[in-house]
Amino acid sequence: MTLLETTSAPALPVSLSGVARRFPSPDGGERVVLREIDLSIRAGEIVALLGPSGCGKSTLLRLISGLDTADGGELTIAGTPVAAVDQRCAVAFQEPRLLPWRTIERNVEIGLPRGTEKSAGRDRVSELLRLVQLDHASGLRPRQVSGGMAQRASLARALARNPGVLLLDEPFGALDALTRITMQDLLLEVHAVEPATIVLVTHDVDEALQLADRIVLLGTDGDTAGATIRRVLEVGNRRPRDRGDARLAALRAELLDLLGVESHHPEDYITQAIKAQRSKRENP
């Protein structure tokens, strides 16, 4: 991978403390979706938000991006509060959301910060299209490309912002299993070149294990309404990761256990793995 000529903005740290979000419920009351979220994300880190469907992962991501406002708590990026639609962030959604009447190239252009000089913008777009391997498809319309290509265009558009924080909302969730794995590798390559902090929402345990430095498990705790952070698991930043690595398998078993899913490992194996993992964390 060649180094990009254009310099990207530096990665920024994100800090959340006591963040809460409530939505009005149909019966006129309020429904707590998120409560007491405390999390500090280092600059350049990849954090995966993992949790069951409907637990508020995407809501948390929207709060960080400023697309939605919290009902309580503090959200800061690099020490300053998150603004409404914060331009230090760039979001890629689960659906590519490309404008169907624009070519791939012109769709990526939307991501460029306002006031970018025309020729510089063009260079940046073609550079990003190369990075996500879409340079051959720059003139095509979204309906002429596959789901994987559309999602890469969406990623390139987000990168065109030069974001300090890159927010990905289940970006590979609608892709087939093979394309998803290729896209995960591509994302890591992109991250090596474009040093943004990445917050990634996923419900796929393997995806979280493959991509993240840390996995933040969201979920409800007992009978209290609203999801909060149940566990933060350190995966480390060693890469590339062997998809069949024993330590990852142990983490995987632990995560599935926490999510309440039967992993179908032999009983003694999973118990051993979890115990080993816990004791290692408790007595380093």
Binding site: R31, S58, V145, A174, T179
Partner: peptide, 24 residues
Amino acid sequence: AASPDFVTGDSVVRGGIAGPPADP
């Protein structure tokens, strides 16, 4: 690692299998 060409085959994936919306 990624192969650049996904044009054939996986076009059906888009949109249809969007999965359940994660948030209310």
